[in-house]
Design a protein around this nucleic acid. Structure first.
Ligand SMILES: [Mn+2]
Ligand SMILES: [Mn+2]
Ligand SMILES: [Zn+2]
Ligand SMILES: [Zn+2]
Lengths: 132, 132
DNA sequence: GTTGTAGTTTATAATGATTCTAAAAAGGTG
DNA sequence: CACCTTTTTAGAATCATTATAAACTACAAC
């Protein structure tokens, strides 16, 4: 019910599909990282009615544009998204291909001293690759 | 000539194709960022004989594995590589889709306080996204 | 409630970067 | 040269993602 308002306030119609995806993405204490494929599997498991793959892509991109999801820059064949949209950083376990959150306090403040004329800093993201 | 030794010492046969790609990638004062497509265009422009796309992919991956190139984690449809293999960071201009080097001194030391059992830090990379 | 309209979903096709295949060519060693 | 291994190559295959366009739906106006 709360998602109906959230979606309306964002200019997105609260469709059955979007509400179901909201439940899966945001109805949880812990935030998490996922690919479109991960999400499609979750939807199939946790939902009676099928949602087409195109709709999953559409919805994730709509939510990302509204700022409810973040894309994580990483070299992988699939795009990773994060339900934690606060500024924070990541470990990337190269063997497991898993992301792990780093709180901002785990990294300390990052001070970018260089400036580019006419450009503003939109985000600062740290990726720490892990091997064994 | 110097690349013949470099390749042999790496266990790679110094073929005509690899030597030509070495010239384009490493025979320059400044390091630079490129995609496979960028490189293919450069090869076509600066070289008489054609090199097949498969060979360009093979060669770039071989050089990356040997540590002569680095992949830059970024969300783009194409993979970006860097001829600067020292640890350094990047601005990413979202509009121009261009990478700009940040020297280590432009960012300051990054202190990762969190540890994961049995895992070693392989790299620490900062990506600063720029808008206007 | 009916109607009209823009927004949304969907199956399916298209795209495009990357990887695979397997046959031909080239490097290197004796 | 003869032999064996590595490399190159054209073309096919893969697969995540995006585009298409027709059917469906939310919802506001009447
Ligand atoms: Mn995307
Ligand atoms: Mn690659
Ligand atoms: Zn995260
Ligand atoms: Zn660089």
């Amino acid at each position: 019910m709360k998602y109906i308002e959230k979606l309306r306030n964002s200019g997105l119609r609260p469709t059955k599909q979007r509400l179901q995806i909201c439940e899966i993405l945001f109805e949880t204490k812990k935030t998490f990282h996922f690919t479109i494929n991960d999400l499609a599997i979750k939807i199939k498991d946790q939902t009676k009615n099928k949602i087409s793959l195109a709709t999953i892509y559409n919805t994730v991109h709509a939510f990302e544009k509204k700022g409810y999801l973040k894309q994580i820059p990483i070299n992988s064949s699939q795009t990773y998204f994060d339900t934690n949209t606060t500024e924070h950083h990541h470990f990337y376990d190269l063997k497991e291909e898993k992301l792990i959150d780093l709180e901002n306090c785990d990294v300390g403040p990052i001070n970018i001293k260089k400036k580019i004329d006419g450009k503003k800093i939109k985000s600062v993201e740290v990726l720490v690759k892990l091997g064994d």
